[in-house]
Amino acid sequence: MRAIAVVEDQLLWRDRPDPPDPGPTEVRIAVAWAGMNRADLVQRTGNYPPPSGASDILGLEVSGHVAATGAQVTELSVGDPVCALLAGGGYAEQVVVPAAQVLPVPSGFALREAAALPEVFATAWLNLFMVGALQPGERVLLHAGASGVGTTAIQLCRVFGHPCFVTVGSADKIEACRALGADDGWNRHDGSFVDAVNAWGGADLILDPVGGDYVPQDLAVLNTDGRLVLIGLMGGRSTELDLGRLLMKCQRVIGSTLRSQPPAAKGRILAALRQHVWPRLASGDIVPQIDAEWPIEEAGAAMAHLAGNASVGKVLLRVAGG
């Protein structure tokens, strides 16, 4: 098969060995589209190695057709259109993945749109509703609101009744987030978001992929019994905290990552998506936001676009069409 290789910081479409035959509980997917995520940018630099046993090929989500199934797989058949959450290996013509991490394409969806679903919807659902334990009516602050995870989380907040406020990098992105259902937003280039979020009413849950100096600001806007879920470190891994505020307001800081979760845990997340979110996708209540697409041979250009922070929603790579 062919797959993307990182060669002296270039992304090259090259011959690679085929993945092994699927095990008893695995499936092989003929990849049509691959989603691009910021984790891919970090892995490309060598700072985010794949979990033990996972493919070293970039790519955490794909769509395509089932090409082969393991002996114990009963819910999927060869030829089924599917999308899948991966620990790695998506920038390739084929990938083998545990069947628990594979979902049918939502009704009415093409494979292109389906490739924009697994990673961002699993991340948003996990951290809002499972790790973050959102309760009815609680208020949410979303950093990087125009990202793939952000635009997904905005829509989940809207359909499940949670007011949300976003921070983004431009006035245009604030408007894009409002159109998806955000109450309001703050341009990070205008300084600290603390006064704006407190004037909005503060947050009961914060989804933060930034870390660094955002964390003390997060705690300054987090309501009593609030939860800060840290899902990334784009702003750095060190900061200072006012532990007195944390203590007196019974706040919680929770670290969360999806990629290293075992297949059974990922399967539970995807099962929840299939139950609660897939019907909303099929009905059009939730629409995946796709910013741009490139052929897989131009993965480097696609990644440069994502790294430039101009995107609103997902960046996709076309492997075989569909």
Score class of each variant (00 low, 15 high):
residue 10 Q to L: 09
residue 11 L to P: 03
residue 12 L to I: 14
residue 20 P to M: 08
residue 25 T to K: 08
residue 27 V to D: 02
residue 29 I to T: 06
residue 36 M to F: 02
residue 38 R to T: 05
residue 43 Q to P: 06
residue 57 I to H: 01
residue 61 E to L: 08
residue 65 H to V: 14
residue 69 T to D: 04
residue 69 T to P: 00
residue 73 V to R: 05
residue 74 T to A: 15
residue 74 T to F: 06
residue 74 T to W: 04
residue 77 S to H: 14
residue 85 L to C: 10
residue 89 G to I: 04
residue 92 A to C: 05
residue 95 V to E: 01
residue 95 V to P: 02
residue 97 V to R: 02
residue 98 P to L: 08
residue 100 A to M: 11
residue 104 P to A: 15
residue 106 P to N: 13
residue 112 R to L: 10
residue 115 A to Y: 00
residue 117 L to C: 06
residue 119 E to F: 05
residue 120 V to W: 00
residue 121 F to W: 07
residue 131 V to S: 10
residue 131 V to I: 14
residue 132 G to Q: 11
residue 135 Q to P: 00
residue 138 E to I: 10
residue 143 H to C: 06
residue 145 G to F: 01
residue 148 G to P: 03
residue 152 T to Y: 09
residue 153 A to Q: 03
residue 154 I to Q: 01
residue 159 V to I: 14
residue 159 V to K: 10
residue 170 S to T: 13
residue 176 A to C: 11
residue 176 A to T: 01
residue 180 L to C: 11
residue 185 G to D: 08
residue 186 W to P: 03
residue 188 R to S: 13
residue 195 D to A: 15
residue 204 D to T: 05
residue 210 V to E: 02
residue 214 Y to V: 05
residue 214 Y to M: 03
residue 220 A to V: 00
residue 222 L to R: 03
residue 223 N to T: 11
residue 227 R to A: 07
residue 232 G to D: 09
residue 233 L to I: 13
residue 235 G to E: 05
residue 236 G to L: 10
residue 237 R to F: 04
residue 238 S to W: 05
residue 240 E to P: 00
residue 243 L to P: 04
residue 250 C to Q: 14
residue 251 Q to P: 08
residue 257 T to Q: 15
residue 259 R to A: 06
residue 266 K to Q: 14
residue 267 G to H: 07
residue 277 V to T: 06
residue 279 P to S: 09
residue 287 V to D: 08
residue 304 A to G: 02
residue 310 A to L: 12
residue 313 G to T: 12
residue 319 V to W: 00
